[in-house]
Amino acid sequence: MKKNKNLITHFFLILFGIVMVYPLVWLFMSSFKETMEVVSSSKLLPSKVIFDGYVSGWKGHGRPGFGLFIGNSLFLTLPTVVLTLVSSILVGYGFSRFEFPFKKILFGLMIGSILLPNTVLLIPRYLIFRNIKVLDSYLPFWIQAAAGVPFFIFMFVQFFRGIPKSLDESALIDGCGSFKILIFILLPLMAPTIFSASILQFIWTWDDFFQSLIYISSIARFPVSLGLRLSIDAMGIPPWNEIAAMSLLAMTPPIVIFFSAQKYFVEGIVTTGMKG
């Protein structure tokens, strides 16, 4: 009886799983089809496997191809991740290991700003970046990351709180300064947290569209998100196989990270439990 019930549960879970990932698998298969086949057949497998979509998309049609957009996205995303980590670790360390006046208020404001909707800051931020002449570059992303991202600051504060203070104190007796304690004693312990934070920030920055749309205007600097939109808007009859191929390439880094670092990924979501 119990076994039967479990079988039924599994049957529905599998069925539901297929419904969930079928679109993604279909997209993958479509990237190897002829354009006409993408929009006319409902078969999953391509009748003939071709790589035209990848080849022409990568080269572009007399304008920048997808290779450039991928490179741009990396150039935008990697420094953003590094700056986020450095500043958020420092700020998280400051908030969790030191007593100073107004700390409680400042910490409250920091947490409160996680809930603050971005739209209410958007226009003045744009005007600031325009005034300091950094529009159409990746500096708006890097500057915002260097200021520490409240979500990740909170994540690191949670980490530091879990490490007994006695560890710092014994090092203090040995004559280590607070910065040395952070670098030589705490940092080696935080590898998993740093890893979680990096992959989350990488994926969020990689997936971002709205900020890129506002801050970046020249095609030569387009990241993947803007490049992809360009390709579906610019052409008369869209070459669907190419669009499928490019969408799939845009999704590849998050997919690879997700499958290779799933444990850290889920842990990151759960410890702070905030985004998504």
Partner: peptide, 23 residues
Amino acid sequence: GYLYILPWIIGFLTLTIAPFVST
């Protein structure tokens, strides 16, 4: 402690509080 949280303080004043009031 202030030194460590300085990046956030600067960012908070210039990229959060000032924009919030400006909007």
